[in-house]
């Protein structure tokens, strides 16, 4: 199940684990990313809490935790090479995996068509 937030994050959900990243649209708007800060594995985050920070050549932006849950993995490859986010924001440039506290909450998020309509 692929879901989106109005804060330009995507979630690919399998069972109770969501892989989270930023959308193609967000990556384009941010420009070339040069630094990313990821949460610690094991961190328990609230919905809407600051999960990560990305820095482009222009500015710093926060990435929010789209749903409540526990961080179970982070993408070390984007730490080493933040430009991976620009190249494949909705693939290899994922940020973290989140074990959802309430998997059913995901149904309230936007699907891809709704998100694309939002940013269109």
């Amino acid at each position: 199940m692929l879901k989106f937030t109005a804060d330009h994050e995507w979630l690919s959900i399998e069972g109770d684990v969501a892989t989270v990243g930023i959308t193609q649209h967000a990556a384009e708007q941010l420009g070339d990313l040069v630094f990313v800060d990821l949460p610690d594995v094991g961190a328990v985050l609230e919905e809407g809490g600051a999960a990560s920070t990305v820095e482009s050549v222009k500015a710093a932006s926060d990435v929010y935790c789209p749903l409540a849950g526990e961080i179970v993995a982070v993408n070390e490859e984007i730490l080493a090479d933040p430009s991976l986010i620009n190249r494949a924001p909705q693939g290899e440039g994922w940020f973290f995996k989140l074990r959802l506290a309430n998997p059913d909450d995901a149904t309230a998020l936007m699907d891809e068509a709704a998100y694309l309509a939002l940013v269109g």
Binding site: G31, D32, V34, S56, V57, K58
Partner: peptide, 12 residues
């Protein structure tokens, strides 16, 4: 213009 389509990094 703050940037053009190539982006800040490439322009620099």
């Amino acid at each position: 213009p703050v940037q053009f389509p190539d982006g800040v990094l490439k322009e620099h």
